[in-house]
Design a protein around this nucleic acid. Structure first.
Lengths: 166, 166
DNA sequence: CATTACTTTCAATAATTATTGAAAGTTTTA
DNA sequence: TAAAACTTTCAATAATTATTGAAAGTAATG
């Protein structure tokens, strides 16, 4: 299999999985393209490769920058902006986790916590509070687990450095 | 805060988070309703409470049954079907994990694995294969971690039984 | 076996979400 | 400072996804 062919498939794959997980398909595709591009790309490069409008590229790139997955670069002798993606997958995962934490998990936890203030004492209400509490615990654990995985990988990295130094 | 009010909010909350995570909003709402209902509900009960059509209730309930989150019951002297949700949140999480594993993670892993067959040996291709391999590893770890959490909870449960028996 | 009481399907439609592209805005250059 | 080279915005539109509701299907009843 040739690289360009594999890259095209990867872009499609990433786009589809992105939208399955509530992430804009185009954003995911741009991310996939940059993730597998050796050099920084310009807006026009991305427009051409993915066949999307200038506006689309701009909006989605800017969102990727907010997520801290992509950053701008310049090229000497060229006025336009070029874009590069963070390539270390564990770093990518960490940043996605961080952003989802901030945008989704925290508000969810806050709302759930509020719902525990049911002041009736019948079976129904007590069960309800238990359910909500259990969900809170579950979400909390899931969240901590993903953080732990990222940290583990960090330690694995430093661990291998330390081994090299021995 | 009164139970019914809290339940309404919970249904909305669950629906919104569901759609953020690629799950049909109505399906998530029906699930939330059943999860916090003391008794089994009929199609008409759900239609009335959530103000959705008969077709909508039917389709989404059937999907919840496929996910193994809801099952049918009968009531003596009544011809219609009634529906109940699995109430144990850890069991719920286990079943959702299982289903997503089957529907999303496995196909993703399969596709990624195929993409490692890039046969060129230039920098670009080697980097690409590394990226894909890293993603595979990451997804694998995330997946194993969620399984582990569910098992831990199972052990916590049996552990407390054992402690009770001592 | 025909009537009633339900459940299921799915074409039509509504609601939502994504995308375009041209105009406005900004920065650089000469 | 005016023109050129680019970036950003956002109203209009396209594409996708969800929802309805009525007709067809199925099973129980008398």
């Amino acid at each position: 299999m040739k690289f360009t062919e594999a890259q095209q498939e990867f872009i499609q794959l990433w786009g589809n999985f992105g939208s399955q997980w509530g992430i804009n398909k185009t954003m995911a595709q741009i991310h996939a393209l940059l993730l597998t591009s050796e050099h920084a790309l310009s807006t026009d490069d991305i427009m051409e490769t993915l066949e999307i409008s200038r506006g689309g590229v701009n909006t989605n790139i800017r969102e990727l920058i907010v997520w801290n997955l992509v950053y701008k670069t310049g090229k000497p002798g060229d006025r336009k902006e070029f874009f590069v993606a963070e390539k270390d997958i564990w770093e990518v995962a960490k940043r996605i986790t961080r952003e989802r934490q901030r945008r989704e998990i925290e508000p969810l936890m806050h709302h759930l916590n509020r719902l525990k203030n049911v002041d009736e004492a019948d079976r129904q209400s007590l069960d309800f509070v238990k359910t909500v509490t259990d969900i809170e615990r579950l979400v909390g654990k899931m969240n901590k687990a993903s953080e732990t995985i990222m940290k583990m990988e960090e330690n694995a990295f430093f661990g291998s450095i330390i081994r090299l130094l021995k």
